[in-house]
Design a protein around this nucleic acid. Structure first.
Lengths: 146, 146
DNA sequence: GCAAAAGTTTAGCATTGGCTAAACCTATTG
DNA sequence: CAATAGGTTTAGCCAATGCTAAACTTTTGC
């Protein structure tokens, strides 16, 4: 008989973590883009697609395609051959990413990790830490300072 | 097989982090699979595709397709309608994943995070921590015990 | 021992996120 | 002010990862 996708409550709990990871991954790229665009705007006054491409290490064409999705998602606005702007929503996401990034990076540094590693690992970790863990990291940092 | 990453030369050290994240993502799924398969074998004596599907929260067909890739990659062996085995390589990857997972989870717990959150966050973080950060976490744990 | 139930695989489709090459604008400059 | 250099977009390809429905195999119950 057709084998419906089983969604029994039993091992649903087990799979929750993996489902969250898949969800995280789909928002991860969007967060990286808006964060980077925000940085570029703050640093150079404007964000060009090619700057984004260079910093992410991908081809221009990939950025164009992704930005189209981000525009559909209401995170950025842009016109052909012009620089990129963030919507209110986009700024909100960028700020949130920066906030997480800062906490994670500072935390790793406080843990005794090198600057280089802290920066790189923070980039990977920031999309996978819950608010609870962020709070614990912030607490640790506060305690360290005292 | 990950796409050929063209190195743009001196352009951007900045992009290194993102490139590593993309690389991590392509191995992440493989690690999750082999780790899960190892767990199932240890727990129940065998790993069936449908168990993997249930625990990961994906459809059976997705698991079949992914296992084909893992087989091509030399991580698992299997025959149609039979249960799944890990190759030596597969076991090695599974053990490494478990090692990382354990450190990260224990570390989060020591930080004061709840068990539930530690388990879930560790699942996401384990694929993005460098050996250096793992060492720092282990050091922290050791210090805590003293 | 065979028919139905249960489990597994195949087929076919969609989306995301990469790439290169070619076409297309914009901007510089002679 | 036109030609061209250079940046940007489009077109079209590929691989990974997900899905449902249908086909197929194995197991079970009588």
């Amino acid at each position: 008989m057709p084998q419906r996708t089983k969604k029994p409550g039993a091992s649903k709990i087990r799979s929750a973590a993996f489902q969250r990871i898949r969800a995280d991954h789909s928002s991860e790229l969007a967060e990286d883009y808006v964060e980077l665009i925000a940085d570029l705007i703050d640093e150079k006054g404007e964000a060009r697609g090619s700057d984004v491409a260079m910093r992410l290490g991908v081809a221009n064409a990939t950025v164009v395609k992704t930005l189209k999705r981000l525009q559909d998602a209401g995170l950025v606005t842009q016109e052909p051959y012009r620089s990129i702007f963030l919507t209110g929503e986009g700024w909100k996401m960028a700020e949130d990413g920066r906030r997480k990034h800062k906490i994670v990076e500072a935390f790793l540094l406080a843990l005794g990790v090198s600057e280089e590693t802290a920066r790189i690992d923070a980039e990977g970790i920031e999309h996978h830490v819950s608010e609870e863990t962020l709070r614990a990291m912030a607490r640790f940092l506060a305690r360290k300072v005292m």
